[in-house]
Nucleic acid binder design. Structure first.
Lengths: 165, 165
DNA sequence: CGCTGTTTTGATTTAATTCAAGCATAGTGG
DNA sequence: CCACTATGCTTGAATTAAATCAAAACAGCG
């Protein structure tokens, strides 16, 4: 799934992509803070706020809950650094490294999102994302494969991680 | 105070500025996620993690705590949108509007941070921040005053808010 | 098959950065 | 009280990274 915010004129910032097992969408106030969309066949389990507060009432629940939100905050904080201070190459390298880690280092990363989604996640245009994949491909750091170029094979995880900085 | 993250080569992203009364720095794991620095005479009250977990155990505490972290997350999420998708003018307008709101619409906003701090908060260079203040000044949307140009007077709150989008 | 949406690639433009002065302010010490 | 220095802000000129504009190729689909 993708969660994102929109500007009135249609510019979009994707906060994060959610993989199976992820928890997201913690809200408190009366209004939703962002939109969530499935980009593949998805099963979602909903949790009521009341149950959340109940779960927090016992020590084990509080700890788990603290872990969850710390993870969200941590991701947001490092993503701010990326959006504000990284170059296009660094952003794309960071993106593939993030996916690689979250999928636990598969041989092939199958991207379910489009180039535009990736661009809107990284604060770039889809053309720049495409060109940057080409740059990393030409540097032999990754392969771009499959009929729709959505299969990514990491050839140089160390080099990519260095770029991601 | 300012809280920020650094890249190895010195590039800096300021997560947020903290005003009197703000709570910040919620951490969970063994390592700190960012650096905090005072940019003015500051008194800081520390809270132990244990006390936090205790406070969460009762319903009132849990609610307050949920409010706190929701506020942090919300700020981070909207800041991601700003960093990834706003222009320089929109960023600076959003910055002065944020300060105006948080200081509860004073006649004069006295900035305690430098132009570089603002730049590192908005994902710009200090020169661009300076130029952008000049643009908004020339548009009669704000005044830049004081011996060191750190006093900002908002002349057109509505217009600035529209720019901030 | 034609239609639609996606990706790539090329040419051009532009917003913001970088490089470079020049000033103003505040602090320091003689 | 006055150089002297350090720091921060502004402004101008040149550069550049990424955006925009444009076109072609391709896959998937009804």
């Amino acid at each position: 799934m993708r969660t994102y915010k929109l500007l009135p004129d249609g510019r979009r910032q994707i906060n994060s992509f959610h993989l199976p097992g992820d928890i997201f969408g913690l809200e408190n106030g009366a209004t939703h803070r962002f939109t969530a969309e499935a980009i593949a066949e998805t099963k979602v389990r909903i949790m009521r706020r009341q149950n959340l507060l109940d779960a927090m009432a016992n020590r084990g629940g509080a700890k788990k809950f603290l872990d969850l939100i710390t993870r969200s905050l941590k991701h947001a904080e490092s993503h701010m650094l990326l959006l504000g201070r990284n170059t296009a190459v660094e952003k794309v390298a960071a993106f593939v490294c993030e996916m690689d880690e979250r999928l636990e280092h598969p041989n092939v990363i199958t991207l379910l999102m489009t180039r535009r989604d990736i661009a809107d996640y990284l604060g770039l245009t889809l053309e720049t994302v495409s060109r940057t994949f080409a740059i990393l491909r030409d540097k032999k750091m990754l392969q771009v494969d499959g009929p729709t170029n959505k299969q990514i094979v990491l050839l140089d995880r160390r080099g990519l991680a260095e770029l991601a900085a």
